[in-house]
Nucleic acid binder design. Structure first.
Length: 121
RNA sequence: CGAGUCGGCUGGGCGAUCGCGGGCAUGGCAACAUGAUCGAGGAACGUCCGGGCUCCAGAGGGCAGGGUGGUUGCUAACGGCAACCCGGGGUGACCCGCGGGACAGUGCCACAGAGAACAGACCGCCGGACGGCUUCGGCCGCUCGGUAAGGGUGAAACGGUGGUGUAAGAGACCACCAGCGUCGCGGGUGACCGGGACGGCUAGGUAAACCCCACCCGGAGCAAGGUCGAAAGGGUCUGCACCACCUAGGUGGCGCGACCUGCGCAGGCGUUUUCAGGGCUGCCCGCCCGAGCCUGCGGGUGGACCGCACGAGCCUGCCGGCGACGGCAGGCCCAGAUGGAUGAUCGCCCAUCGGGAUCGCCGUAAGGCACCCAGGGACAGAACCCGGCGUACAGGCCGACUCGUCCG
RNA sequence: GGCCCCGUCGUCUAGAGGCCCAGGACGCCGCCCUCUCAAGGCGGUAGCGCCGGUUCGAAUCCGGUCGGGGCUA
């Protein structure tokens, strides 16, 4: 489970990451990545369309455990928001982990490309 | 053994690895670290009722409005629960019932039907007058009356059965039965039950239609509310201190304190005078606040802490009560998040469902046990806290009782 | 978390105890008209979210569920 210091819990930061960050989806997940947030932080969005409270809680818990193994390898100061789509309900953690790796990897490379092009005009 | 009724309990277990939240202890200025410990439910759900708590002025009166509706109790309270009564269902255990009033008044009862609430003559039945026919027995037509026993309509047709009676009939009269009203008697706290006398012969349904009766209900809700901040200002004052001016006393200035309000633009009403406006749910009375208020458009902030977890609390035993429940004694401390902790992954076992194999065991057989394979954990997640109700739920376990059949 | 509101053909709606096996418009389907299409005409298709109750009778009244939507400092 993620330690409290890494959790993203402010409405403003959520909006900033979702609006300014790079978005990539794979399978039942969509990932927003925004570098330069000050400190590395991770947040989750699981809407009511995913299911009732029990299945929503299970999905967020699975995602939190998966991000716990991955947030240390992120570049420092990266803001990440993982959004669960309705298909995420009832998936095994291994499946969600695969989708998360692919979506996160693509979003990170895209964010890095964008930083390079803007840094070397 | 079969069929069934009622009530209660339970809601996968064990292990390994890695984690999260709370308060506590220790160390540390602190961030934090370490340690032991606690960490979802019977419905945490729906938000349908009731209460605690907080604020609205100290929570007022009348009307309006809303709710409840057999009785007696239980309870902090309830629209909940228990026991009983009445009505209905079941052979029975038992189940179901928004179960006050229709002589306080008003409304409605479509269609069908002659007639639907001060009932009603369509057919039929009976009698009279007139006309026609006649085989002189009557028959037909028309008209005036009588008649609610019969037909037919309807959810419902103004007691039922039998008799007397009559031109035909009718509670017109009689007997029994059902039902209504009044007055006694006995039993019960009471709803009501049992039985008696008298009366009139009969009264439709609907109040989850208005309404009447009895009882209950002020409004909002923890995003309540409080402290601090963003954030700076404006106003009032019976307050306090100081200074100045003038005649005892007052006026002005400045600071502190308390309270109210809180940005910009536009429009409207008001600021004199007991008057705009606001609050006490709507109206009236009564009362309070009062120099600002209302409407529209646009913008800012949308943070921290308290409230916040010892409570109508849980467990055990005894006592009272048919029971709901209450009393006493002893013991226990039992989630507290805020983008929201209470878990993730893996292995084994158990309950259970599907399929296979018909080689093992029991059995005449259906089938059961064992074996193999894959699937696989029901409904569902605290958010201020309790008491209920309602709804969802794979299965498993226990107890009491009823009916039927067989054996003794 | 709390407080409210609404459910009628595929869509938007009327209906407020019987006149309604629910009316209208846009749709959809078929036929007529036309050389063909459109327009026009005729006919049809379909609905009271669900389950109980009150009543002789319910889209309407009452209760319970299910679904959708709104507000909050």
């Amino acid at each position: 489970m993620l330690p409290a210091t890494v959790r993203l819990r402010r409405r403003v930061v959520f909006d900033a990451v979702v609006r300014r960050g790079q978005r990539c989806g794979h399978g039942p997940l969509a990932v927003h990545v925004s570098p330069g947030m000050g400190s590395t932080s991770v947040g989750f969005i699981v809407s009511r369309a995913v299911g009732n409270a029990v299945t929503r809680n299970r999905v967020t818990r699975q995602l939190r455990h998966l991000m716990r193994d991955r947030y240390r390898s992120l570049p420092p100061g990266t803001g990440v928001v993982v959004r669960a789509l309705p298909a995420a309900a009832g998936r095994r953690s291994a499946d969600l982990g695969g989708s998360l790796d692919r979506a996160l990897g693509r979003a990170l490379t895209r964010a890095a490309d964008r930083a390079e092009t803007s840094a070397t005009p």
